[in-house]
C-alpha cells in the first residue's frame, strides 16, 4: 500500500506554488503603480471635480448641424480610407514575410523533425525585420512622413503600412504554426510545393483566425489613424484636435459617437465573416 494513503487529508500539491506565484505577481504590480504615480483619489478632490464637470458639461448635446455633419462625413471617409489603404499595403508586405518566417512549411523538417540550418538562418533575419517594423510606433512614423510628404492622409497610410506589416506578419506566422500541421506536411510529403501546401493544408484551418485578426487590426488601424490625425495626418483625428482646441464639446461628442459606430461596424463585419468561415 502506498505510504500517502495513510495520511488523513489529501492535499493538492499544486496549491502552494500557485499561491506563491499569485503573490509574486501582485508584488510585481506594486512598483508599477508607484512608478506611474497612480493616485486615483486626485480625481475626486473638489477642484478637479469642478474642472472636469465644466469640461464635460460642454459636451452635450452633440453637434448635428448639416455643415458640421458634412465635414464629419468627409473626415470619416478619409479615416476609413487611411486605415484600409494602410492595412492593404501592410498585407502586401506581411503575407510574404509571414510565409518565410513560419516553420510550418519547412520541407527539411519532414526528414528530421526540425528545419535545416539554412532554413533557420533565413527565418531569423525575417523575424528580425518584422520586429523592427513593429517596434517603432506608428505615431513616430507619421511625424516623420508628415515632414517628408506634407500634411495629409498619405503620411498616415505609410505609417500604418509599416507598423502593421510587422504586427500582421508576426501574428500570421504564429497562426500558421498553431493550426494542425499534418495536412500541410502530408501534401509536402507527396511532392507539393510549399505555397500549394500552404494554400491547401494550412489556409483552410487558419482562415477564420486570420480574418478575425486582420479585421481587429483594421479596427486598430482606424483608431491609429485618428491618433495620427493629431499630428496632421488628416481625417477624424485632425478634426477632433481642432474641435478640442476650440472647446467645441458638441463636435467632440459627435466625433466620438462616430468612432463608436465605426468600431461597432468593424465588430459586425468580423462576426459575419467568422460565421461564414466557421
Amino acid at each position: 500500500m502506498p505510504v500517502t494513503a495513510t495520511r488523513a487529508h489529501w492535499h493538492d500539491p499544486a496549491a502552494t506554488p500557485r499561491a506563491l506565484l499569485t503573490l509574486a505577481l501582485l508584488l510585481v504590480l506594486w512598483p508599477g503603480l508607484q512608478l506611474t504615480e497612480f493616485r486615483p483619489q486626485i480625481l475626486f478632490n473638489a477642484q478637479n471635480r469642478e474642472v472636469m464637470g465644466r469640461f464635460l458639461a460642454g459636451f452635450w448635446p452633440p453637434d448635428t448641424s448639416a455643415e458640421f455633419l458634412l465635414m464629419l462625413g468627409r473626415a470619416t471617409l478619409e479615416t476609413l480610407a487611411m486605415a484600409t489603404a494602410g492595412l492593404a499595403l501592410a498585407l502586401l508586405l506581411a503575407i510574404p514575410l509571414s510565409l518565410i518566417a513560419t516553420r510550418t512549411l519547412s520541407i527539411s523538417a519532414l526528414f528530421s523533425g526540425r528545419p535545416s540550418r539554412t532554413g533557420r538562418l533565413l527565418r531569423y533575419p525575417v523575424r528580425f525585420v518584422l520586429i523592427v517594423l513593429r517596434s517603432i510606433p506608428e505615431i513616430v512614423w507619421a511625424l516623420l512622413f508628415v515632414r517628408a510628404v506634407g500634411l495629409g492622409p498619405t503620411a498616415g497610410v505609410l505609417a500604418i503600412a509599416i507598423t502593421y506589416s510587422g504586427m500582421l506578419g508576426k501574428v500570421y506566422a504564429e497562426i500558421y504554426e498553431s493550426v494542425d500541421p499534418q495536412p500541410a506536411r502530408a501534401l509536402l510529403q507527396s511532392g507539393s510545393s510549399r505555397l500549394a501546401a500552404f494554400l491547401y493544408g494550412v489556409l483552410p484551418n487558419a482562415a477564420q483566425e486570420l480574418t478575425s485578426y486582420t479585421l481587429y487590426r483594421w479596427e486598430c488601424a482606424v483608431r491609429a489613424s485618428v491618433i495620427m490625425g493629431f499630428v496632421g495626418a488628416g481625417g477624424l483625428g485632425q478634426m477632433i484636435d481642432l474641435s478640442m482646441r476650440m472647446f467645441a464639446g458638441g463636435e467632440v461628442v459627435s466625433i466620438l459617437l462616430t468612432f463608436l459606430l465605426l468600431v461597432l461596424l468593424a465588430d459586425q463585419i468580423s462576426q459575419q465573416l467568422r460565421k461564414r468561415l466557421a
Partner: peptide, 30 residues
C-alpha cells in the same frame, strides 16, 4: 519522386473546413 508516391495515412490529414472535392484534388498538387 514524392509526387509519384502516394501514402494513405492512418488518420487522414484533411483540414476540417476544407471541402471534400478540394481535399481530393489536393492529391495532384505535386
Amino acid at each position: 519522386l514524392r509526387s509519384r508516391i502516394g501514402l494513405i495515412h492512418q488518420s487522414p490529414p484533411l483540414p476540417p473546413r476544407q471541402r471534400v472535392v478540394t481535399a481530393v484534388l489536393a492529391g495532384r498538387l505535386g
